[in-house]
Structures are given as structure tokens and as C-alpha cells.
Design a protein around this nucleic acid. Structure first.
Length: 476
DNA sequence: GTAGGGTTAG
């Protein structure tokens, strides 16, 4: 039957792909993933009940492999495995794994999976714990599904489970992000009714949400309400409110709030984030004098600016085309000793590229290298990328070698390496391409999948078959 | 839970 053979060859191709990965890089996890998968195939009913009897090591590579085996024909089983894995004491899903699961099973496009999973638990009489629901809720959160998250919360009583405030906060955050402050506020009120008091995190989320939708009075009202309820607002709460008040255009009121915070001197004194967000608002409005005023003000208050503060100001000056003033600012800040010249000039390089002044960026970048000032990873990456895009891959490679000399290569990722290598190939700089390829192999930096074929073709043509073999060996 | 330069990997 054509249909059958198609399905078979499809599942076979997934199998082969994974097996290749296993044998090349992850020989031990391959066995684990195989064990879990085979076990689920043999025990399709209430898989959770016996999965813990499988004698296999659980880690992220293994979970990833099992998910890939289950996709696409056994997605429900895959998600159930994912949830089960998240409950094991020996293992915890990283945020990356949640992303992986959401992406693989296309949860945003199939939000009904939550219903399917919970229905399956109910029908098969599975043991469902609060943690089970938390894993499902985290999947909703990663996929940005507010309604489904609320739905998961609502199904808990059926299993005699009670949500905690962390779970409520997850759902509240989703509704705040959606701009549905009516639902968010209802949930906050509901917490109080079931003896789950909203905490500092709840208030931060709510106040931020109210500010974003322009409901300033409600945001301020919450500040009063939390005080009344004995939850004393801290610097974070104040900073969020201050930022919102500012963004909504009430400059005077915002500065009044900042005054209040400074005078309080207690748990809600302004910190570097508070001041930086005020500076950011001034910068966005092109009010650079006022932004600098806040910098002086924070220093007078004894709060040291950091990398973010300075890069915000540099960005502001560059956007206004006032590059000279950015240099003056850097001189001042570096003399103050809180932020290194490497960090400051790196920010300037990044901003010069952003405002399309790549020549100045390159000049500054070269000066940094000549003076032993180490550019950060972003500055290096963007500088090399910019040169590649301009068709100056050879210059990019020279810079690359300079960066290596001062030990700054560790923060350049494989994408930039692949891009530089592709461009060197395209511009026919075979000697440099081979040199970069050898360097990458030495550091076990893989080629990006999308550039693999192009690079391999060029390396073959230029007589570097040995390099091709080595790249093939370390995989894509 | 607040500012946050670009993308991606586990």
C-alpha cells in the first residue's frame, strides 16, 4: 500500500537521522532514548506508570532524542514523556528544552494538545501532581498561550489539586502580556479569595501591565493597595511604576516619584536599573541633556552607572548623530572607574554600525586592538559581519586574526565563523579560507548547516579534501 | 519581578 510505505519510509528516515547523531556524538544517550522510546511503544497505556522502571540515564540530549522520535506521528506521547521527564528528581528541563518542545510540537498552532494530555490522564487514571500541571503551564508560558494556561489552572480541582501563587503569577503574566488586564486583575483578586496572597511578583506584573495599557491610576492604586495589605513596595515595584509614569508622559510626576524613592532611603531606594530606565526614556525622546542630568544625579546619590547605563547613553548620542559627545561621555565614565574602556568603546562600535557609519566603527575597532583594549563579543561579531556584508571578507579575516592575538575570540559564535568562511570562499581567498577552516577544526567549531555545502564545495575545488573530511566528521 | 546592544546552542 503506497500510504503505508510512505509512512514507513518517513519514520525510517527520522530514525536513521537520529541514529547517525547518536553514533557520532552521543553514544550513551542514544541507548537511553532508545530504551525510553521502546518502553513507551510496548506500554502505550498509562506510560507514566512504568517509565521510572526504565533503567536509563535521563538528560537533555536524551529527552531531545525521544521527542524527535515521537514527532510527528506520536506527538501526544512525546508531550506526555516530556511532562513525565520534568517530574523526575534526577533531571530538570532547562528553559532551552521547553523551547525545543514547543517548537517541535508546534504548540502555538496546536493549543488543543493541553486538552488532549489532560483528557488522557483522566481517562487512563494517571497520577497527576501539582508539578505535572506546572510543566504544562510552563509549556503554555513558553508558547505565550494565556487562555490555555488559564484552562490548565481551571482543570486542577478535578484532580484534587490546588494552584499556588507561582502558578497564578504565570497565568497573570500571560494575560498582562496579552494586554488583558481585566482577566489579570480578576485572577489577582481570586488569589486573595483562596488564601493565596498576591506577592511582590504579582504586583510588579500587574503594575507593569496597567502602565503598558495606559491605566496609570490603576497602577498607582495597586501601589496603595499593596501597602495597605502589608506588602511594602520595594525598588522593583517603584522602578516599574516610575518607568510607566515616565513613558506615559507625566515627567513631573515621575521625577516626584524618583524624589520620593531617594528620600525614603530604605527598601525602595533607586538602584542602577531605576536610573537607567529613566535615562532610557530621556534618550528615546532625544533629551540628552536631561539624560546626562540623571547620570550626575545617580552618581551624587552614590549609585554607580554600569555597562547598560553607559550603552544607553551612547545609543542616545549616536541616534542623535552626536558621536563626539559619545566620546566625551566615555572619557568621563572611564575616569570614574565603574565601566571599563573596553565595554564603553565596544558599545560605541556597535552603535556606529547600527547608525550606518561602518568606516568609523572599523577605525575605532582597529584603534582598540592597537591599544590593547579588548572589544566584547558583540562588537567583534558585528564588526566582522559588517565587513563580510560589505564584501570585505579579507579585512574581516585580518581583524579576526588580530582579535585572536589578544585572546578575544572565545565570544565569537559559530555563525560568524561560518559566515566569514563562506565569504572568504566566495571572494576566492582560498589561502585564508583554508587557514580559518583549520582554526575552526582545531576549536571543534562546526559549520552552520546552511553554509555547509557551499563551503565544502569550495574547499574541494581548492584542493582541501582533508579539511572537508574533518568537517564532515565533526558534523553540522 | 525592574534597564538589556544579535543569534544560537544544550
Amino acid at each position: 500500500m503506497p500510504h503505508f510505505s510512505l509512512a514507513r519510509s518517513f519514520s525510517l528516515s527520522i530514525h536513521t537521522k537520529n541514529s547517525r547523531l547518536f553514533t557520532q556524538h552521543l553514544p550513551t544517550t542514544a541507548t537511553s532514548a532508545e530504551k525510553f522510546y521502546t518502553h513507551m511503544q510496548k506500554n502505550p497505556n498509562n506510560i507514566e506508570k512504568s517509565l521510572s522502571n526504565v533503567n536509563a540515564q535521563l538528560d537533555s540530549a536524551c529527552v531531545n532524542q525521544v521527542l524527535n522520535r515521537c514527532f510527528p506521528s506520536q506527538s501526544l506521547m512525546g508531550i506526555r514523556f516530556f511532562v513525565w521527564a520534568g517530574l523526575q528528581s534526577s533531571y530538570r528541563h532547562s528553559s532551552f528544552m521547553y523551547d525545543k518542545a514547543c517548537e517541535l510540537f508546534k504548540i502555538t498552532l496546536n493549543p488543543s494538545v493541553f486538552n488532549d494530555v489532560i483528557e488522557a490522564y483522566r481517562k487512563e487514571g494517571c497520577i497527576v501532581r501539582v508539578r505535572t500541571m506546572k510543566v504544562l503551564l510552563n509549556l503554555c508560558e513558553k508558547s505565550g498561550l494565556a487562555d490555555e494556561a488559564l484552562w490548565v489552572l481551571r482543570r486542577m480541582p478535578e484532580f484534587n489539586l490546588r494552584a499556588d501563587s507561582v502558578m497564578y503569577n504565570v497565568v497573570i503574566r500571560l494575560f498582562c502580556d496579552k494586554g488583558d488586564m481585566v482577566m489579570a486583575d480578576n485572577l489577582r483578586k481570586e488569589m486573595g479569595l483562596i488564601d493565596l496572597y498576591p506577592n511582590m511578583i504579582t504586583y510588579v506584573l500587574m503594575i507593569k501591565g496597567f502602565c503598558i495599557v495606559g491605566r496609570l491610576e490603576d497602577a498607582c492604586g495597586l501601589l496603595m493597595a499593596m501597602r495597605r495589605l502589608g506588602c511594602t513596595p520595594n525598588s522593583v515595584v517603584y522602578s516599574v511604576l516610575l518607568d510607566g509614569v515616565y513613558r506615559l508622559g507625566s515627567t513631573e510626576r515621575a521625577l516626584g516619584l524618583l524624589d520620593e524613592m531617594e528620600k525614603d532611603g530604605g527598601g525602595c531606594s533607586p538602584n542602577v536599573v531605576t536610573y537607567t530606565s529613566v535615562i532610557q526614556v530621556f534618550c528615546e525622546k532625544g533629551m540628552m541633556i536631561d539624560a546626562l542630568g540623571i547620570l550626575d544625579r545617580m552618581e551624587a546619590y552614590g549609585c554607580a552607572p554600569n555597562r547598560v547605563t553607559v550603552s544607553t547613553l551612547i545609543k542616545g548620542f549616536c541616534t542623535e548623530g552626536k558621536v563626539e559627545e559619545a566620546y566625551m561621555l566615555i572619557d568621563k565614565v572611564v575616569a570614574g572607574g565603574c565601566v571599563s574602556s573596553g565595554e564603553c568603546y565596544s558599545s560605541l562600535v556597535v552603535e556606529l554600525i547600527r547608525i550606518k557609519r561602518p568606516k568609523e566603527a572599523e577605525k575605532l575597532f582597529r584603534e582598540m586592538l592597537a591599544n590593547g583594549v579588548k572589544p566584547d563579543g558583540l562588537a567583534c561579531s558585528l564588526m566582522i559581519k559588517e565587513l563580510c556584508l560589505e564584501g570585505h571578507a579579507l579585512d574581516g579575516f585580518c581583524l579576526y586574526e588580530e582579535i585572536e592575538k589578544i585572546g578575544g575570540l572565545s565570544s565569537i559564535d559559530s555563525d560568524i565563523h561560518s559566515m566569514l568562511l563562506v565569504r572568504l570562499c566566495q571572494e576566492s581567498h582560498s589561502v585564508e579560507a583554508a587557514k580559518l577552516a583549520r582554526f575552526m577544526l582545531g576549536k571543534r567549531i562546526r559549520l552552520k548547516t546552511s553554509s555547509f555545502d557551499k563551503i565544502v564545495e569550495h574547499l574541494k575545488k581548492s584542493g582541501n579534501e582533508d579539511l572537508v573530511k574533518r568537517f564532515t566528521r565533526i558534523g553540522r
